[in-house]
């Protein structure tokens, strides 16, 4: 599905991501963990196209996407749920999700402003799919509310719904559970697990190791921009370097 070939990106001479080669298989749920500043978010930005790599390349479904813009990559099927809550304010939950439909619809300013046939054809489908996505994440009762008025946990699920409305083939989740209460984390985990069961390929960045190892098929550990370990959740938990670099001595004892 996705291969990164020794991609690197530095800021002011410091590598944020260095020679990272990953291969994500179709249907895989890959966890990415690492301490603060390990390069997890930079890696995601390189995949979404918000950052360009200094070296190395990206191959997605057999084609190079290094030069594709973020919105082009989105239309190729790469969606992301951002860290925090990057919502579209002043728009309802449903409208937020409808924006995601940009990837598979075409009508532009003329069709929209003049209500040409293309608008009518697409608008109903957009609304239906967006409603389905809102339903999936359990936000149907909030569909008409302004996005910014929702609690954080709901906002995260809203972002997931928006990404789903784009009909992604590869979904990136950047710390979807951070800052949430236990119950909200469970809701997010349930949605992710369900999507995994349906065969959606995902990459999950999380600070909380337990959350990732409970969900992921494989886990890649980054430290200072480099891959220091890669394996099943069980292997990762046992890995000496991981324990030293990331979990720390205290965690190893516990």
């Amino acid at each position: 599905m996705l291969q990164t070939d020794r991609i690197s990106r530095s800021f002011g001479g410091v590598f944020a991501v260095r020679d990272v080669s990953l291969s994500i298989a179709e249907g895989e749920l890959r966890g990415i963990i690492g301490p603060n500043g390990a390069g997890k978010s930079t890696l995601f930005n390189l995949i979404t196209g918000h950052l360009r790599p200094d070296h190395g390349g990206l191959t997605y479904r057999g084609r190079r996407i290094d030069r594709a813009s973020p919105h082009h990559r989105a239309s190729l099927g790469i969606s992301i749920v951002f860290q925090g809550a990057r919502l579209f304010r002043g728009m309802t939950v449903l409208e937020n999700v409808m924006v995601g439909a940009h990837t598979w619809t075409r009508h532009g300013f003329w069709s929209g402003a003049l209500r040409l046939p293309r608008y009518w054809r697409e608008e109903h489908r957009i609304r239906d799919r967006a409603k389905a996505a809102v339903d999936r994440v359990g936000l149907a009762p909030w569909a008409g509310r302004y996005a910014e008025s929702l609690p954080l946990g709901h906002q995260r699920r809203l972002q997931i719904a928006r990404a789903l409305c784009a009909q992604p083939k590869l979904l990136l989740l950047d710390e979807p559970a951070s800052g949430l209460r236990a119950e909200e984390r469970q809701q997010v985990a349930r949605v992710v697990r369900q999507l995994h069961r349906e065969g959606l390929t995902m990459m999950l960045v999380e600070h909380d190791v337990g959350f990732v190892t409970g969900l992921a098929d494989r886990v890649t550990v980054l430290d200072l921009g480099e891959v220091i370990a890669d394996g099943t959740p069980e292997e990762i938990r046992e890995d000496e370097r991981v324990i030293a670099a990331y979990l720390g001595e205290g965690a190893a004892d516990a």
Binding site: H50, P70, H71, A74, F82, F88, M91, E95, V99, T103
Partner: peptide, 16 residues
């Protein structure tokens, strides 16, 4: 309306 809030998220949602 989306890009008015956050251009980054709008782009990733497919908005040119």
């Amino acid at each position: 309306r989306a890009l008015a809030s956050t251009e980054v998220a709008a782009e990733s949602a497919g908005v040119p």
